[in-house]
Design a protein around this nucleic acid. Structure first.
Lengths: 215, 215
DNA sequence: TAATAGTAAGTGACTACTCACTCACCTTTG
DNA sequence: CAAAGGTGAGTGAGTAGTCACTTACTATTA
């Protein structure tokens, strides 16, 4: 008489999805080496052996996580919409609020950081391509606004990087490292946008200065 | 007859220092779990067993690395010197150029990131205390300059965080993730300072706006 | 409908290997 | 010689990945 319990059956697709989300959380919390396949299996509620039925290696599971592409194009079309109306505030706010994958962003960001630090090719996907889109797009917009006389003369790429730097830094501190910041994400992003636009918008009174003065 | 070669003797202090620097580089490149004591020993040119004569555990070696305190006070006195002369440019440039430990900063930064991501108490030392000093000091300076009418009215803490965010983001991309940025560190810091000061210095023409407008 | 055959889902026990850490012993130096 | 510097050869505790096997379910056939 065999009385061992086994988990109810599930479809291959569901299992794969639950495996990915369980593994993503663990990898993001402890890194690739810091996470064991046994832990992943337990978190997903299956046996360790079954993990290898769905993914041939631990690494394959890892790469499958970030391979679920982020909906970058959706963001860009939304940005383009406000950009056509020359809604500077809207453009900066939309870009500042971007999430790699809605609902799971801090996890994905942590994973991305680990991936980059551990030297995995996963991060190249983001830092090599996706990440550049923001810079290129935002820099293009800033360039346009400079030509239209709405923004001060400055290096558009550097200006874009400055803005994204502010936002990324804040989100890193707040969402990843959980440093207490005493104010809501929403407020801070709004203030950053405000502060940044004060620096960029052209009051048509003070002349733009050249970019390099410190020796 | 024993013909095995062994390493020449070294003082305890020298060994400890070379162990720390070898281990720091490895931990920074691959994380705590990703680095083996065997690798560390080989990098330091000694046997694995000897590592444990100097440090009782792998973790003890790890904590010893960041425990070498950074010369933060030196930076602060340098900053205070230019701050007294109200050299805004000098203040921002000095803070932007700060290195945790001169000569080994990217390594230390990588280590710090790993430490923070892996949830080790090491990062608290930095994010909990040292890191705050920048914010508090810079925010205090900005506050003073606002009261003197030199900067626009804005939240000093947010302004400080924005500036440090820009710089940290750039240095992260450039020094840690080695993203090609097509411009020198020096130029970028200068442009950041310029851009930021343009936003903060008060031309006495455009009124400061309130911080929150985005819904 | 009931027996049979086929198959995907699922598992415990195992293997080959790696890891941090230990120990008995050797060598150099004062 | 005694103390300190130094090591090769381990050891037990994991760890990824395999394998032979069971179970739950479905389709086919008589």
């Amino acid at each position: 008489m065999n009385t061992t319990r086994r988990a109810p059956r599930a479809s291959s697709h569901d299992r794969q999805a639950s495996l990915i989300s369980a593994a993503a959380a663990l990898f993001a919390a402890k890194g690739f080496k810091g996470t064991t396949t046994k832990e992943i299996a337990r978190a997903a509620g299956i046996s360790e052996a079954l993990v290898f039925k769905y993914f041939p290696t631990k690494r394959a599971l890892y790469t499958a996580i970030l391979a679920e592409k982020a909906p970058l194009s959706e963001l860009l079309s939304a940005v383009e919409h406000v950009a056509r109306k020359r809604d500077d505030h809207g453009v900066f706010t939309l870009i500042a609020g971007y999430r790699i994958r809605p609902g799971a962003d801090p996890t994905m960001l942590r994973l991305l950081l680990f991936s980059a630090l551990e030297g995995h090719e996963l991060a190249d996907m983001f830092f090599g391509k996706q990440h550049r889109v923001f810079y290129d797009y935002l820099a293009g917009y800033i360039q346009t606004r400079i030509e239209e006389g709405a923004f001060r003369k400055t290096d558009p790429l550097l200006a874009a990087r400055a803005f994204i730097g502010m936002v990324v830094h804040h989100r890193l501190l707040h969402e990843i490292f959980e440093v207490p910041l005493h104010c809501s994400h929403q407020d801070i992003v709004a203030t950053y946008v405000e502060l940044f636009l004060n620096g960029l918008t052209c009051p048509a009174t003070s002349k733009p200065r050249g970019p390099s003065r410190v020796r």
